[in-house]
Design a protein around this nucleic acid. Structure first.
Lengths: 161, 161
DNA sequence: TCTGAAACGGACTGAGCCGTCCGGTTACAG
DNA sequence: CTGTAACCGGACGGCTCAGTCCGTTTCAGA
């Protein structure tokens, strides 16, 4: 790939991350292109549709989440491991409108199974330790993550076992 | 007002309620008109802009919330009064995408002060009774309402004093 | 330096939407 | 029954946005 192409691709992805995070999924491709300092034709050459561009941004964010979840598993204390990830994920949602608005789309992304697996382990461990309420599945518990973007500690209090 | 005009106005408001609740604020005026069985010119004669139509729908929903809050105040038990309203409000958000997406717009509506006043009383009473945590203001507590649309009891657990 | 392939970006198209307008229709009073 | 004022709805204009296309520019290897 030519150097200028790579540079522009990086700029586009960076701009798209910022734009979607700040303005949600309805930000126009032109806005992204403007922020990246390229014409919007350039954006469409790299990403065949706006949706593909959004997917790239979401995938990047999910990658980060997977790392956070796996880091939580290395924590000795089961509750601290779970709560740390929960808080971090909640903050991720708080800083990124697109993540919230495109929740459904996220479910289709390839890194989702990985994230789910790590999240299951975090929840299972904390439940087995008696630190986390047992009347909810992992999936249900993580439905609360977007909700927790504002006052995570209140929700975590409600989740204690 | 002529009888047919009144009938169409009712239909339009009803259709708008359903459309905005199901599809959020981005539903087109044409969709509302189609569901109401009128041309979209008829909608714009009653409501000068789409925003005005949305306001009418939101106002209707807020009116319902005010009644719910005032009903909560008649409850003897302070916690039950608060929690009942909290749950009902959360369900209102769960059944109505527009309420969530147009949160900011709701704040500008004339019935908001009334709702706020009733909500303040509910919270104050429950806090004074020691049933509700005291480290959050009423406003902060009700920021959690949309979040609670999924698992209200978990959030209520977290809110107990 | 030279050259051709790759990349760029802005003009263009078509679709969807908001809001206007006017010719035709309908309800209702007399 | 009839005249008319109110009402209806679809055609239309202007706008924004996604996605395409092609003339022009830039890069990188020979």
């Amino acid at each position: 790939m030519r150097a200028d192409a790579q540079r522009n691709l990086d700029r586009v992805i960076g701009a798209a991350c910022e734009c979607f995070a700040e303005g949600g999924v309805d930000v126009s491709v032109d806005d992204v292109a403007r922020r990246a300092g390229v014409g919007h034709g350039t954006v469409f050459r790299r990403f065949p549709t706006k949706e593909a561009l959004l997917d790239a941004v979401l995938a990047k964010e999910l990658d980060r989440m997977v790392l956070l979840a796996q880091a939580g598993l290395t924590e000795d204390d089961a509750w601290r491991g779970f709560a740390g990830f929960f808080r971090a994920a909640a903050e991720g949602y708080a800083c990124n409108r697109a993540l919230l608005e495109a929740k459904d789309r996220c479910r289709e992304l390839p890194q989702m199974p990985l994230l789910q697996k790590a999240a299951d382990k975090l929840v299972g461990r904390a439940q087995k330790a008696g630190a986390l309420r047992r009347d909810m599945t992992a999936e249900e518990i993580f439905e609360l993550v977007p909700a927790a973007s504002r006052f995570p500690d209140v929700i975590l209090d409600g989740l204690r076992g």
